[in-house]
Design a protein around this nucleic acid. Sequence first.
DNA 1: CTCAAACTTCTACGTTTCGTAGAAGTTCAA
DNA 2: TTGAACTTCTACGAAACGTAGAAGTTTGAG
Lengths: 127, 127
Amino acid sequence: MASLGELERAVMDLLWAGQEAATANTLRDQLARTSAAQGGPGHEGKELAVTTVLTVLSRLEKKGLVERERGTRPHRYQAVSSRADHTAELMHEVLGSAPDREAVLARFIGSVSEGEAETLRKLLGHV
Amino acid sequence: MASLGELERAVMDLLWAGQEAATANTLRDQLARTSAAQGGPGHEGKELAVTTVLTVLSRLEKKGLVERERGTRPHRYQAVSSRADHTAELMHEVLGSAPDREAVLARFIGSVSEGEAETLRKLLGHV
DNA sequence: CTCAAACTTCTACGTTTCGTAGAAGTTCAA
DNA sequence: TTGAACTTCTACGAAACGTAGAAGTTTGAG
C-alpha cells in the first residue's frame, strides 16, 4: 500500500507544499493552476469536480497519509507526515524487504552525488 | 512502473536466488514448492499453469526486469540486474522524486541500525 | 423557523494492472 | 510427417484509481 496514483500524488504535493490545512475547494483550484502551468500554454487548467478531490482525499485518509479536521464545516485536510518523513519511510520500506540489506546500501551509496555523500558523512559522523 | 504484483515478485525472488537462467517450467515447480513451504502444512503447493508463468515473465520482460534467451528452445529467463542493484535503484527512484533530497537522507539515516550506520561510514570513507 | 446554498457521503463507471489460464500457432525429434 | 513440447494470443475477474453525478446533511440568511 505504498504507491500513489497521479492525482493522489498531485494532491499530496500540494498538502506537503502548503503550511496550513486546506479545504477540498482550495485544492481543486490549486490543482487547476498547477496542471495549467505544467501543461504549458493553451493547456487550460482543468477544473476537476470537487467530489473528485474529496474522493481522492478520502482514499488518502484511508491510506493514512492525510488527516482531516471534521469539526470545521468545510473540512480541512493536511498531510500526516512531512514529505521528507514519508519519503524516508518509503525508502526504508523498499530496503526492508531485502534480505541483503548491506549489499543494497553499498549499491545505493555507490550512486550518490559527492555533495550528498558529504551530507551523509556528517550525519553519521559522531559514533 | 516500479511496483510488482505478488506473483511477479515471487518470480523475481526465484530468479534472483538462482544462479542460472531458468525455464518457465522450472519456475512453475519452484513456485509450487515455495508456496507450499510458506503456506504451512495442509497447504499444498499450488501448481500454476505454465502459461501463467509465461505471462508473468513476459510482463517482467516488458518492464525491463527480466531477459530471455530466445535461442534455446525452452527459452531461459534471468534477472537483468541483481536484487541488490534493483533495490538500490528503487531507493534512488523514491528519493529522486523529492525536491528536498538532503532532508530525506537525514530522516533516512536517523532510523538506520547502528550496525548499518557503521557499514555506511565505511562505504563513505569516513574522514 | 424555513429554505436554499454549501458541503459531505454514497454510488458508479471507465481504465489500467495483475493473477490466471485456455486456445491457437510453432518447432523439433522420432 | 506428425505428435509432443513450447510459445504466443486472447481473455476474464478483481483491485486500484480518475472521475463525477445523485442523494443526504448542515448552516446561514431572511
